[in-house]
Design a protein around this nucleic acid. Sequence first.
DNA 1: TAAAACCCGAAGTTAAACTTCTCTACGATT
DNA 2: AATCGTAGAGAAGTTTAACTTCGGGTTTTA
Lengths: 69, 69
Amino acid sequence: MSDLNKKFGQRLKEVRESRGLSQEKLGDLIDLTEDSVGNMERGKHWPRLKTLEKILKVLKVKPKDLFDF
Amino acid sequence: MSDLNKKFGQRLKEVRESRGLSQEKLGDLIDLTEDSVGNMERGKHWPRLKTLEKILKVLKVKPKDLFDF
DNA sequence: TAAAACCCGAAGTTAAACTTCTCTACGATT
DNA sequence: AATCGTAGAGAAGTTTAACTTCGGGTTTTA
């Protein structure tokens, strides 16, 4: 379990919660299952390109802000 | 070909060149082929977690600086 | 005391990261 | 003008890990 992954997950969770979204709701918006969102936030895996693009769009966050850790 | 991918590639190239490394040399350092580094810089693909970790380490750059675009 | 939200492990599927090959292009050097 | 280093680019094949699904358990909140 990498440090980078964990930090990214924590940051993603912060941004998601600041938008008032549940993992399930975010999953719907970016075409991922609730579990996959959870896995990402807990550092289990890394988003692929298409997923990251959707995250940035849906959460209205810029790359440098999502990777600010 | 996504915008995100292209911008990341351009930024990666900037950082690589600022360190005085060729694509081949960087590839050696992060266990990728010269072609793969080239593909990434031209927006053909996105790094997986392990690759990104190596890039950050080898180029001595922080996530928010590599994603500053 | 539910129910909503989240955590967590394991095993299977699938998309795309990555490789390999081939050719082209261009500037610098000899 | 011929070789060398570096990089752009397309196509087809391999492999890894992102993602799914299932089964539970725990925490939070109404």
